[in-house]
Nucleic acid binder design. Sequence first.
DNA 1: TATGAATGAGCATTCATTCAT
DNA 2: CATGAATGAATGCTCATTCAT
Lengths: 204, 204, 204, 204
Amino acid sequence: MATEEKVLSTPMKRGEKSRRKLLSAARKLFVERGYHDTRPQDISREAGVGHGTFYLHFADKRECFVSFVDEAQVELQREVERYSHDVDGFEERLRAVFEAVLKYAVANPGVLTAAMADPDLIGSPSGKHIPIVDRWVANWKAFFDVSKENGRIDPTIDTAVLACAIVGQLNALCIFAQKTGASADRIIDTLARAFLNGITPQQD
Amino acid sequence: MATEEKVLSTPMKRGEKSRRKLLSAARKLFVERGYHDTRPQDISREAGVGHGTFYLHFADKRECFVSFVDEAQVELQREVERYSHDVDGFEERLRAVFEAVLKYAVANPGVLTAAMADPDLIGSPSGKHIPIVDRWVANWKAFFDVSKENGRIDPTIDTAVLACAIVGQLNALCIFAQKTGASADRIIDTLARAFLNGITPQQD
Amino acid sequence: MATEEKVLSTPMKRGEKSRRKLLSAARKLFVERGYHDTRPQDISREAGVGHGTFYLHFADKRECFVSFVDEAQVELQREVERYSHDVDGFEERLRAVFEAVLKYAVANPGVLTAAMADPDLIGSPSGKHIPIVDRWVANWKAFFDVSKENGRIDPTIDTAVLACAIVGQLNALCIFAQKTGASADRIIDTLARAFLNGITPQQD
Amino acid sequence: MATEEKVLSTPMKRGEKSRRKLLSAARKLFVERGYHDTRPQDISREAGVGHGTFYLHFADKRECFVSFVDEAQVELQREVERYSHDVDGFEERLRAVFEAVLKYAVANPGVLTAAMADPDLIGSPSGKHIPIVDRWVANWKAFFDVSKENGRIDPTIDTAVLACAIVGQLNALCIFAQKTGASADRIIDTLARAFLNGITPQQD
DNA sequence: TATGAATGAGCATTCATTCAT
DNA sequence: CATGAATGAATGCTCATTCAT
């Protein structure tokens, strides 16, 4: 029977396939041309569906962008968990997260940058921005707070500042990695050392 | 006497005054609403001049934005020089620059953020972006290279990565400072310590 | 029945109807007000479609004008062929073409004139002009060349000059016919006689 | 005395010089770029005067164009009179006028064409057009009427049609001469023969 | 008389969104 | 669910004309 067969071969609702194609096309175009130079029509054409179909799956262009961001967010989170899964120790975990983020950035060029670029007003006080950055900052802060309690972090350090700084760093370095083609490992080395021990020469 | 005063204080060409008003209005609106939500007409109205006057001074909207960025760039540079003018020593200079940037960011909320947000495509590989970020990264790298030669920086550190990271940090922290209202001094303390000595507890 | 009739008489794609309405409106307005005094918006309104629909069918205003010219060209060509279809003899053919052109001009007042008026630069050396005139001149020249070989035209006559002159004449007379309301037949009489035998009195 | 000196050296009002420069610039630009692509500002710049000066001499852009047309008209008239001054006989006079017009057209490329191209609506029934064409047609008609009375023209010929046709021919041939670089003499030969004797072979 | 900065209505064109099919 | 023609408010920009200097 047709329905059953469909369910067996592709266990997704009829429309789900269009949605996937649209999201995939959206990711490609948002990354390549940016939010403002990408029209819903472009996305639909790239996805190979009719223009009207776009609005069957997204209330508007912005919601499509948010979906793209969410997808990237989930993917990155998965990577972070994969890299830091069975890693113990503060420094090792830190390094593992750096690795997850940078390798994801290299493997998905432009995605993180595009996802963090608010289409309307980046980092503006208007509060309209997509809270992906805030979420990440919050995650880092929580991690640092725990580490601070465990004595792994200098108690005079302000963890909120630290969390914010590290997100800024990673964001900048993702662009850097992609632009210069520098190996993720090399970046991670410098970043981890500087972050953990500072940039002044080590005297031991 | 009015005429005399005018001549003495601002011997300004007729058109220069409009340009100032336009740039000032542009700064206000680009910061408040972002590039894409600011129409040349809005800028003109805010400046109190006719719509056509805008195009007497800027070839197009983008050139106006670039002028705004240049202005901010010059102002910030001036602050950095003022703060680090007669400061000796690596750590002191570093701290002075942090101070200059963060205090400028607090005094001019949103300006640096808006100036670094490329209207068309942020950090994209398309190369269309306004190179303010690249310039800053280059400046920092030069500074770190010298410091490295002088033995003030761990020789295994990659200065390009470092320069990029610090710009990312400062950018993020400017937003943070403005959003949370955290005192610049508090941020600088954490930032400088982390940067110089790392975030791990100091054992002396 | 309406549906059936539609299918039978005009099995027209959805968009084709708009295009027809737009072209028809464009013809009316280009003729009445000229290219420069006709806005795409006027054409859309006259056609009873939205402003944006115009750009669904024409890349820009100029392409719309070119389409209008092409349409007129095709119509006129059809008339010329109809009139000269089963006409033999040089003089008879010439007269038939005169008749076709002038009657078309009278039946479609202003169309030929508007179509020959290049919107950007009439007859200029810049080469931007719409080559309808060139095409007509070329057609006439070919006709005269054949007639010359057949001994129907004075061999000392330069057919290129002749072709150009006749197009100029016809163009001017189309305007004349329309403006003065002179009967096409009367014009054709004088024109044919002058062209064939010259304007000097016939002595036989 | 200053005034007297001025009068002696340049017997023209102060402003007359600007006017000349403007008209000369206008002619150049109207011919090169056409009416609609020539801004008053372009004319002023080309003339080397301030933009405001334009409106000191012309009420508006259109009046400037009309002045340009008038100037060309006067020049051409002078040429026609020069060529046909002491010429007797109908055919000789006709030929002389052809010569005057075509040689003027070759010597002043584009001027006649630009002058006859009504900026607003060429040959339209709206009546807005500059009446240079009408004037010429009227002149020709008067000439033909006299010639007809003198028995130099076939009495069955409609002189109004003839006058219109000849203006159309000349206009087209001016463009032709300029575009193909054909010698004026060659054109005149064909034109005069066709006009006087018709294009059919002469049997004598 | 001369200037050129200023004006703002007007233009061609775009694009997020809707809706009849 | 899917389509793509249709929409019209909105945009960036131009340009004939004015007017304070």
